[in-house]
Amino acid sequence: MNTNIKIFIITFLSILITVISLFIGSHSINIYNIFNSESIDNYIFFNTRLQRVITGFITGGILAVSGLVFQSIFKNPIATPFTLGVAGGASLGAAIYILFAQSISLMAVFGQTIAALIGAVITILIVYSFAFIKGRLNNVTLLLAGVAVNFFTSSLIMFIQYFADIQKSYNITRYITGSLAAVSLNNILFLTPLSLAAFIIIYSYHKELDIISMGEYIAKSRGVNITSSITILYFTVSLSIAAVVSATGPIGFVGMIIPHIIRMYVSFKNKILIPVSFIFGGAFLVLCDTVSRVIIAPAELPVSVVTSLIGAPFFIFLILKTNKL
C-alpha cells in the first residue's frame, strides 16, 4: 500500500476516535444538546469532556514522539520517555510535596504539579551532567545515568511511602499511577503552546534523527553535529515530558509502542514518523482514557492501567505478526 494512503487512513482513524470519544463516558452526550446552554450535556461537554480529550490527545502525542526520539537517539527499541528518569524525578517531587503538604485542597493539586515539575527538571539536569566524559557527550552514559537515577528516585519514593501515613501513601500511589482525571483548563493552556513548540523543534531535527538512528559513526561521517542535536533533543523531550508528567503522572506504554506501530506499518523516516506518531499517540491515549471512564462507570480506572492492559497484548501480537521489532 502506498505510504500516503496509510498516512491518510491512520490520520482519519485517529480523528474519528478522538471525536467519538467526546461523546462517550459515564454520561453519554447527545450531539444535538451540546449547544443548548440549558442542558447538562452542554455543561459536561464544555467543562469536563472537551478539556479531558484535548489534554489526553496532547499528552499521548508528546509521549509517543518523546519515546520515538529516545529510541532513535539510543538506537534502542525499548527506550521510553521515562527511561531517563524524568517520571521518577517528577514522582519524587510530588511524593515529597504530598508528604509535607498539610491539606488536600485545590491549592494542593497545583502545588503538587509544581513540585513534580521541579523534581523532573532537577533529574534532567543531573542525568545530563553525568553524560559528559572528557568534555564529550556520550549517549551510552546518558542512557545508563538515566536508568540509574530512575532506580534511585524509585527507592526514595518507596522510602517516603513506607514512612508516610496511609492517606498520604495512598495519594502518592494515586499520583504514580498516571491518570487524566484531574486535568483542568489550566493544563490545556499550559500544555498546548508547549507541545507545539516541542513538536516544531523535534520535527526540525527529522533528518538528524534518521541518521543518528543509523549509528554514531555514520552520523559523524555524514556531518551531523551529534552533541548539539542530542543536547537540544534531550532537553526538548525531557522538559515536555516533565510538563506532561507533572500534570498527569506517568502514563506508560504509549511512548514505547506507538512509534513501533508507525514504523512497522508506515515508515521509518522521521519526516513521516514524527507527525504520524503524534497523531496516533494522541488518539490512542484518548481511546484508552475513554475505556478507563466507561469500563467501571460511574467510577473510573487510572488510564495508565488501561494503556498497559490494551498496549501490552497488542504489542505482543504485532511482534508475533511481523516477527521483528
Binding site: 538506537k75 543509523m214 521509518f268
Partner: peptide, 20 residues
Amino acid sequence: VNYSVADFTVEDFVAAGRYP
C-alpha cells in the same frame, strides 16, 4: 549498520548520504 530502529529502505538509507 545498526538497523534496530533504523530499518530504512535502501533508497532512503543511501539518500542520508546527501545530508551535508
